[in-house]
Design a protein around this nucleic acid. Structure first.
Length: 269
DNA sequence: TCGATCCTGTAG
DNA sequence: CTACAGGATCGA
């Protein structure tokens, strides 16, 4: 589910439904979600807070609460955060749930339970997010910024994009898709790319994220959750052995950093 | 940079 | 049964 566009879609939905609501109680069903914090710390800390804002930094969701506190949520692989009409009807997949004062529920669901829900103080935020890079669709993410970062990194291009330090929010799918559009081989060390090709990659990152952002939010607003392939057409991701839509060669899959990377050996160099 | 880890579900 | 999954962190 969640790379930046999907996380943003989740935030938009929450903003439309949950702002100004008061949290009567928060319950942690799975302690692992909250670790290394304790169940009691998070439950007590969120009780009685009013939801003042829903913000996002990279893939991090930041729910601002009254009293200089906030809920810091990371969906990781399979997490989701949704408002439901009646907290009593939460599903068995609820790992953390909150009862709102009007009886609705704000529920963190996560089948694999790899995600995180933490209670923070506003003052801690900068420290916690210090390694989260620039937003890919912000003005700060310009060609110069990207060139400078690229020049300093020996990492393979795909690893570089998935690392959140330079630009935040790209995951396995959109990193692969941006590289395909830019015709760059995922193993290519960033510092070895010509400036003009780095510029090209900068451009395709913006394209991919813009398209994904729009369709993710649209699909999510309407139907309340679709799997990616229904609204974002991938050219390489999860297409091992199929023809490259651009040059016709067979798409390959290689391991990188313990994950699968898909690319076209014909046109990505 | 690799592998293990956190977990469960699903496809082959 | 094994392999793999849209993420991130840790230690060797």
């Amino acid at each position: 589910m969640p790379e930046l566009p999907e996380v943003e879609a989740v935030c938009r939905r929450l903003r439309a439904s949950v702002l100004g609501a008061r949290i009567v109680q928060l319950r942690v069903v799975r302690p692992g979600i909250v670790r290394p914090q304790t169940v009691t710390a998070v439950e007590n800390g969120a009780a009685d807070a009013v939801i003042e804002a829903v913000e996002r930094r990279g893939k991090h969701i930041l729910i601002r609460l009254s009293g200089e506190r906030l809920l810091h949520v990371h969906l990781r692989m399979t997490g989701n955060l949704v408002a439901i009409p009646d907290v009593r009807f939460r599903g068995p997949g609820a790992r953390v749930w909150m009862e709102l004062s009007d009886g609705r529920g704000l529920v963190y669901e996560d089948p694999r339970a790899l995600g995180k829900v933490h209670l923070r103080r506003v003052a801690e935020l900068d420290g916690l997010l210090k390694d989260v890079g620039v937003e890919p669709l912000s003005d700060t993410f310009d060609a110069t910024y990207f060139r400078n970062a690229a020049r300093r990194s020996q990492k393979p291009a795909k690893i570089f994009l998935m690392d959140q330090k330079c630009v935040a929010g790209l995951g396995n799918i959109y990193a692969a898709e941006a590289l395909w559009r830019a015709k760059i081989h995922p193993s290519r060390p960033m510092a070895k790319l010509k400036g003009i090709r780095v510029d090209g990659l900068h451009q395709t990152i913006r394209e991919v994220m813009t398209e994904a952002m729009e369709s993710a939010s649209a699909a999510y607003a309407e139907a309340g959750g679709f799997s990616t392939e229904e609204w974002f057409v991938c050219n390489v991701y999860d297409r091992e052995g199929l023809d490259c839509p651009r040059c016709g060669r067979k798409i390959k899959r290689i391991p990188q950093g313990g994950r699968s990377t898909y690319y076209c050996p014909g046109c990505q160099r």
